[in-house]
Design a protein around this nucleic acid. Structure first.
Lengths: 164, 164
DNA sequence: GTACCACTGAACAAGCTGCCCAGCAGAAAC
DNA sequence: GTTTCTGCTGGGCAGCTTGTTCAGTGGTAC
């Protein structure tokens, strides 16, 4: 667990120019091709890099509305609720959490009106007691990992980030 | 806006085997290479496919703790808060929302103890009045788009998904 | 001292990419 | 009805990359 600076540079480079090949990568990093290859393979088998799947924009697909729903679950119904939500395509993500509410899920919809349909489908299940929905207006920081990768590469142990 | 079935199959195929080339893709889809190439180019310039950046797992990087924080902002301080949060590497995502709380952000940390440091850094800014944090315990549905892509490909207009 | 590991630098055949072209079918415009 | 446009097909070509293998080197652990 943890990455060194070369690993960090590999990830950043791949994030900036995903179509780059291993050979070009090795040239930019100033290392041998075999090294770049080996590092990349290791990052993938480590699970640090999960994959290179296409990043799809739901808005461009016709789902411009995003919302977060906090769900309250009836005791003991967690498993069923998880299975139910997994069948709803508009549920992009689901977490079980501490704090007020038991689950948090990310939803998308074709419009604000359509969001009602999605929410109805989500909560139309016995195990769900209550749902509180917050519609996303703006997304000032889209999902990102690069700053974190930079920090992890600079300081694999996390020693300097602790309070002094 | 909207994709047809061939587009959908391209995205699904790319999600399943990201390292696949255009030639192999065209073979699997049963179309000419030029067609696959053109479709892929169009999907990218459309913005449907944002890119193919590496999907990094924060847990494997040494940040196994995820949390969602709901922030309440002092009137008129929104811009400053956005800028402040953008400088924190552990803030992976930030949304402004309707409903209780004004912003929702996704955080990661090295441990539960470390989460305190992150929250202190997030909240240690004048414009933030209050923060409510929910720690993620389990992630039954990791961020996914494929089911949505399938639905969009089957029904680009969304007609069949409306209540009857 | 020896074994082990990571990196370098090189070579090879095989395959893919980017690019070009000509032809064809369906839809829309005139 | 004819023309134009768009999207798809199928082919060819040079150039480059990939996957793989090999030998050599330096540092580290035992």
């Amino acid at each position: 667990m943890g990455i060194d600076q070369l690993d960090g540079r590999i990830i950043v480079l791949l994030a900036e120019e995903p179509r780059i090949g291993v050979l070009e990568m090795s040239r930019r990093l100033g290392v041998a091709r075999g090294t770049a290859q080996a590092r990349l393979d290791r990052l993938q088998s480590n699970g640090v890099i999960r994959g290179f799947g296409p990043q799809v924009d739901p808005a461009a697909l016709g789902y411009p509305v995003t919302a977060f729903a906090t769900l309250e679950i009836r005791q003991g119904q967690g498993t069923d609720v998880r299975a139910h939500l997994a069948t709803v395509p508009e549920v992009l993500e689901l977490h079980t959490t501490t704090g007020s509410g038991d689950m948090l899920c990310r939803l998308v919809a074709r419009s604000n009106a359509d969001l009602q349909r999605v929410i109805d489908r989500v909560v139309g299940f016995d195990g769900i007691v209550r749902a509180a929905t917050a519609i996303v207006m703006e997304n000032p920081v889209p999902l990102r990992v690069i700053p974190l990768v930079r920090q992890a590469a600079e300081d694999p142990e996390g020693t300097t980030t602790w309070p002094t």
